[in-house]
Simulated assay, not measured.
Amino acid sequence: MVRGVLPVEGLAALYGPSGSGKSFLTLDLGAAIASGAGTWFGHRARQSSVTYVCLEGEQGMGKRIKAWSMHHGRPVPDSLQFVTQPFDLRKMDDVTDLANAIKAVGGAGGLVILDTLNRAAPGVDENSSVDMGRVIAAAKHLQSLTGGLVLLVHHTGKDANKGLRGHSSLHAALDGAIEVCQNDDCRTWRIAKSKDDETGCVRGFKLHALVIGVDEDGEDITSCVVLPEDVSEEVKRTAMPRGENQKIAVEVIDGLLRESQVYGQGGAPAGQQCVRLDDAIKAVTERVDADAKHRKQRAKESITSVVEKGIYGCKDGWLWRN
């Protein structure tokens, strides 16, 4: 759907903490794809129909659409359509009805956005492998009925460094993932997972406020639009490991951290997931590209490099995400 960012088909996620701007970014993404704008943040976008299932913050969606239209000087494209009625992924009738509705208006093979996963599966235990497995199966079934790409908008947990909230099986099932981050006034998104392209690419953005009307009391009605913004080289270096072995190290260590039940060891902040350095070296050794004789050394070198870049903290034989 977006070159180097999201595949044409499969299951993907866009996730971040509350207030990070992920729903504004999701609308901007959907509108770029539906309008055939050509690019999104410099990445070539494939023109396609988009179905936005808005299950959270739907009261504000009208204002966001109006702000987007005012900023771009044209209405939201007809090929971007919205669903605001309740929807439950775990109910096969709901999945079938949605798929049939999408196909009836020519949306097959396009992008389907479920915003948010929590509202699309109300009451599910996100930390349960069984419950998450059912949710994943239902999302994949929706994708199989409609073709194209299903994008799940999801939250991070209390500790955003742990990635997607809930059981790790969700991340494993994805064909692509975009992580949205906010640090003070700096907002970024990065490619957190891509099966066929490079991960780690970082793009900055800001939310630009617009006055879109006046209410009955004479007060301004405002909303926001997404504007690309350059991020510092320091942010790019921190988020983008160089070299294939460094990228492998980040992928392996992040996977270990998601599964870790150990917190706050070494110099890590309290509540921060940690892994033993020796365990990380062992796991990375199995993946790095090197001959058997030098594989362990290459693993150590790649881990040292990503620690020096500030991606991980390391002390007293423990690793954690910064």
Score class of each variant (00 low, 15 high):
102 I>F: 08
269 P>D: 01
301 E>F: 13
77 P>W: 10
278 D>G: 02
145 L>S: 03
205 F>K: 01
20 S>R: 02
96 T>G: 04
253 I>A: 08
56 E>S: 05
92 M>T: 08
47 Q>T: 11
174 L>K: 06
114 L>F: 13
14 L>W: 07
247 K>F: 03
145 L>E: 14
53 V>C: 09
104 A>P: 02
37 A>G: 13
251 E>P: 00
122 P>N: 07
111 L>S: 04
12 A>Q: 09
237 R>F: 06
24 F>N: 13
88 D>E: 12
255 G>F: 07
319 L>Y: 14
136 I>Y: 07
187 R>D: 05
67 A>H: 04
192 A>C: 04
308 E>A: 11
106 G>Q: 10
225 V>S: 01
246 Q>H: 09
63 K>I: 00
214 V>E: 15
83 V>R: 12
69 S>H: 09
198 E>C: 05
219 E>N: 13
164 L>Y: 12
78 D>I: 10
140 K>E: 13
204 G>E: 07
150 V>N: 10
201 C>G: 07
217 D>L: 00
61 M>R: 09
120 A>V: 13
112 V>M: 08
282 K>Y: 09
205 F>W: 03
165 R>L: 07
88 D>F: 13
172 A>P: 00
47 Q>G: 00
316 D>M: 06
36 G>E: 02
290 A>N: 03
49 S>A: 13
79 S>L: 15
101 A>K: 15
107 G>E: 00
301 E>L: 14
122 P>L: 03
162 K>T: 09
28 D>Q: 05
164 L>S: 07
243 G>S: 08
207 L>A: 12
297 Q>I: 12
110 G>Q: 07
213 G>H: 01
239 A>W: 03
39 T>A: 09
294 H>T: 14
113 I>F: 09
45 A>K: 00
108 A>S: 15
83 V>T: 12
82 F>H: 04
86 P>G: 08
37 A>H: 00
133 G>P: 01
